[in-house]
Write a protein that binds this DNA or RNA. Sequence first.
DNA 1: AATCATTATGTAAACGTTTACATTCAATTA
DNA 2: TAATTGAATGTAAACGTTTACATAATGATT
Lengths: 331, 331
Amino acid sequence: MNANIKEIAKRANVSIATVSRALSGQNNVREETKKHILKIARQLNYNPNLLARNFVKGKSNIIGLILPDISDEFFSEIIKSIDDTSFISGYFTMVISSHKNRSLVESINTMMNSGIAGGFILLVPFMNSEIEKALKSERVPFVIISGDSELGDYDIITIDNYNAAYNAVKFLADNGYKKIAHIAGPDENNDAALRREGFLNACTKLKLETKKSWIVKADFTLESGERAANLILKQKERPEVIFAANDMTAIGCYNAASKLGLKIPDDIAIIGFDDVLISQYVSPPLTTIKVDTETIGKTAAEKLIQKMTQTEKLKPQTIKISTELVIRNSC
Amino acid sequence: MNANIKEIAKRANVSIATVSRALSGQNNVREETKKHILKIARQLNYNPNLLARNFVKGKSNIIGLILPDISDEFFSEIIKSIDDTSFISGYFTMVISSHKNRSLVESINTMMNSGIAGGFILLVPFMNSEIEKALKSERVPFVIISGDSELGDYDIITIDNYNAAYNAVKFLADNGYKKIAHIAGPDENNDAALRREGFLNACTKLKLETKKSWIVKADFTLESGERAANLILKQKERPEVIFAANDMTAIGCYNAASKLGLKIPDDIAIIGFDDVLISQYVSPPLTTIKVDTETIGKTAAEKLIQKMTQTEKLKPQTIKISTELVIRNSC
DNA sequence: AATCATTATGTAAACGTTTACATTCAATTA
DNA sequence: TAATTGAATGTAAACGTTTACATAATGATT
């Protein structure tokens, strides 16, 4: 059985109100009394009942984290970063992933209405009217982590996909590449769409050669990358470099190249996106664009906590997290 | 503002007790009344206040998940699997990772004493007296996921490290290998210790040749694996195969072999442990031991929920999750 | 010494649920 | 018909905390 403030009050010979004040670090309690109370609390190994506290305060110090149905490196780092940041400000992180048994909308509704979370962070690759509707009540504050900064009038933390892609292509141009292909991600994924847009605009602006048959869609998996690379590399005219929408796709290109007897980067150069762990270990190490997951998580948590603590409503804000080109040996 | 049972009671012209009973699906309420109440609840878009419910029931439907300070593939899969399983039984998953700002012991204490979690799952690679002490109160039920099944008198979900290692060596023996080396994990890591023990016993039993200089310690990282492999492969007498304590170490061996001009598996064969994502993509694909993270998470969550729901105290149980040899081309 | 301002402490209500116990009402039995 | 049972519903307390308001104690100012 855990001790409670009533018990402490009895032993310290004061009222529960004084105990509450002493323990929650308020200043309107005599130094001596405070010390006495704290001592007894320590003796009893007292821990405040957070459920009671959250309940009576009408708000929770739990931050919900809604994840879509995928598990990858990216998420475990985001989770960690959010948990780190939340903890420092006295919050807990609750994970609620969506999957066959629970839809994203259901997760949002739970976070929004059960009172269990004081705010939440929503990771979504896309937006639709169902989600939009679930978010409308705004009963508890939230922020969104997404590849798309144009989802609507929300607080959004986003990767600067467009500029990252643009600059990657610029880097390739600066290094003398002229003929460039792209393996895109799934259509409905906003990160993918923006990377593709950045690629296309850079090609036009920088006068690089590309063509329809060099732009192949894949779905972020290694296998789809290999398939797509095959389609590109078996054409009569071959590009000098492939810009893959993510690292796994890029590694798929490695496989395709290897099977076709093409040397990287001499016969075909490759650049990826994400900088996943493997990228530095493939051979040759993959040049890619590093996404700073730690900053993303940290920024999202900080923004959310800001919203949770301040009363006046601020205008929704989009924060773009910049990326970094990691130059290795694949181009 | 969320509706509450008081409001529903008023509109339905019944007492809050009846509303509570109707909503929590108890049978001692007239069918007609129940329907009426549910209808009004739906109209008001009522969601029970989980904080209040948990608080008054004196137990929480939140499952805490305490993670050590590492982020890898393994964890994100475990988290997902636990969350999946918990959700089906009506529980939430709260992640609390340990790191520079918060020690493992502190995490345990929070879970144990704040009332915020009704139970927790502890992932620990080792046990010490501090942790032991924190666990002693047993104020809330918990289970442990660990490589060591001999941590103490706890409910433990564990990988069958010893037998997995033993069988891996047996597999090598069956395939004609006679001279075998081992790159071990850190001393204080129990998974590592058991794998090493399985290796040693198998060598003795199956009369395989190994020696002290062929057993080198590393720390589960790729770099340490490369270093260790170098120490082994540069000796006058070279083993035929290296059993690495985990896949990352094994991939370190790949690097060392490649730099020494040794062909895998002809000059030196390699076997790993874990079956991380990369393993199937390195060249040649790595033969390794697959750890079924999904089953681990599921089993842990189910065991915990069982403990949380039943009153009588059962004898602590150790559940060993078996592994599976994934034969690829590295030996 | 009397008044006022300030600080410390106490009293009691409030948060939204669940649930033990009490009550009512109708149906069944003697 | 009276007594008994059982189901449906109501009443009110309880959970542990915070906090508005009331009161008491202290110190400062006249």
